[in-house]
Amino acid sequence: MAWLNTIVQGVLLGGLYALFATGLSLVFGVMRVVNLAHGVLTLLAAYLALVIVDLTDVNPFLALLVVIPVMFGLGYVAQRLLINLTLAGGVLPPLLVTFGIAVIIENTLLEVFSADSQGLNAGRIETVSITITDRLAIGWFPLGLFVAAVVVLGGLQLFVDRTRFGRALRATSDDREAAQLMAINDRHIYAVAMGIALAVAGIAGVFTGVRTTFGPLDGAILLIFAFEAVIIGGLGSLWGTLIGGIILGVAQSIGAQLSPGWFQLAGHLVFLAVLVIRPTGLFPREGVAA
């Protein structure tokens, strides 16, 4: 029954991956831009929380109160000042500019914080668990993480589906020029979308900082995990991203169970398998292509 435990851990991990992936998926869905800096920005949030915790000695989850608005603001400003400028030039400029941003942030983190591993300490919640059977125990933290992921995703879906702004967002994603004819400020919409994406990345970053240790070079792998979750789950669907994250998490957990070094590789292989068998992902929305 050790396998059941492994799978459950994988599912709960999937919640975190879904959070990683949401921001990436949102930005692509709205603007057709793949933000190559997404992983590094998630990491930046973890470092931000670290600084706050170092200064004020609060619980890392409380730091979210600052991290979320700061990340939102960062996304909004970056979009308005930089990324919006790249949208007219075709596929290359947004990719190259976001890649440049990633390089800058990663190396800034290296300079400021050095290459040491860091961790966010959330106290007892990290280790307390619920025992279900004598072979299966679920930690409070992973469970809370998963629930948080579902809540965030659900909230976001509701926001996009039911609110006036959400409609404007969907309209702008469909047809930017026509949206302008509806009194929608498309530049502002894009900036808010990026802000939301980074705010969610901020939540993901803080959670990952609590969950494991992190270092400045981890941005790459975070981007890759987010990307794999998006592709496995299928483009254009938030709930698909959750499923994708879960599958990735389970694959990795099983891989790690077989051999500790296979953690990442197992995830990559499952990703490649999905790419071969169903390139559009498992639950793609119609009309959206990778």
Partner: peptide, 21 residues
């Protein structure tokens, strides 16, 4: 099987797989 930015990350994943293997 991927395009644009996802193609880009895909190539990175492949590089990682080669490295790990």
């Amino acid at each position: 099987r991927l395009r644009g930015g996802y193609f880009a990350i895909g190539t990175w994943v492949v590089a990682e797989v080669y490295r790990l293997v």
